[in-house]
């Protein structure tokens, strides 16, 4: 084969997918193509520099714990009850109830005119109330994380699980500002849940001002509750 090999052939050759009879013999005899191939190799080898953080030893167990609660099973309620503390359970139940109410309010509009509106208001109020409590609890746990030597890791993981529920519910309810705040909290909680908090992380919690954000978000939600309901 006298013609030089193409870049595409070199890429396939790198990944072992080229027709080797077309590429390998040519590379042996052609310094120009060998140079091209070396340049390609350098770039693709450099791509290995992008590493993935290795999840902790309990990763699989944590995935299953969260997943099991979401799987459609008759025993789901019992499992969830053990999985969340009673307060989160009550709030999560309220949230589920809210979604059901909101759903039916939208679907069954043969009800008297005022009924769907009233049901929608109840659902929104339940959301605000549950999320307000969640912000308060987050504020306390974050303060503990930033200031106490012993991190409440079980509480952090529970908080993360509950946060996922609330973020999804807020998004579905069109409460985008709340969903965004919960998203920011979730990013931090994911990080905390996967490492033992150290001085750097504690400092970052303080520097980010997330405790203050939780306090403000909680206050705003309560203010809305008062004004709107």
């Amino acid at each position: 084969m006298n013609q030089h090999v193409t870049e595409q052939q070199l890429i396939l050759h790198y990944y072992g997918e080229a027709r080797e009879e077309d590429v390998a013999p040519h590379l042996e005899g052609c310094e120009a193509c060998r140079g091209q191939y070396r340049a390609l190799q350098r770039v693709l080898n450099a791509a290995d520099a992008l590493t993935v953080p290795e999840p902790g030893a309990q990763f699989e167990a944590a995935v299953w714990r969260r997943l099991e609660a979401s799987l459609p099973k008759p025993a789901l309620a019992e499992r969830l009850r053990g999985w969340l503390g009673w307060q989160q359970w009550a709030a999560a139940t309220a949230m589920a109830g809210m979604l059901v109410v909101a759903f039916y309010a939208g679907r069954h509009s043969q009800q008297p005119e005022l009924e769907p509106m009233r049901q929608g208001a109840v659902a929104s109020r339940m959301l605000l109330s549950a999320v307000g409590n969640h912000f308060d609890r987050s504020q306390m746990i974050l303060a503990e994380l930033a200031n106490e030597p012993e991190a409440p890791m079980d509480e952090v993981r529970d908080l993360l699980d509950a946060n996922r529920l609330y973020r999804a519910s807020a998004g579905q309810a069109g409460e985008l500002a709340i969903a965004e705040t919960l998203d920011e909290l979730e990013r931090l909680l994911v990080e905390v849940a996967h490492q033992t908090p150290n001085e750097e992380l504690r400092q970052r919690i303080l520097d980010q001002g997330i405790i203050l954000k939780m306090r403000l978000a909680g206050a705003q939600v309560r203010e809305r509750e008062k004004i709107e309901y």
């Binding site: 993935v52 990763f59 699989e60 995935v63 299953w64 997943l67």
Partner: peptide, 10 residues
Amino acid sequence: VEKHSRSVFR
């Protein structure tokens, strides 16, 4: 889940 979750994470 236990067998495949780590590779799905990656």
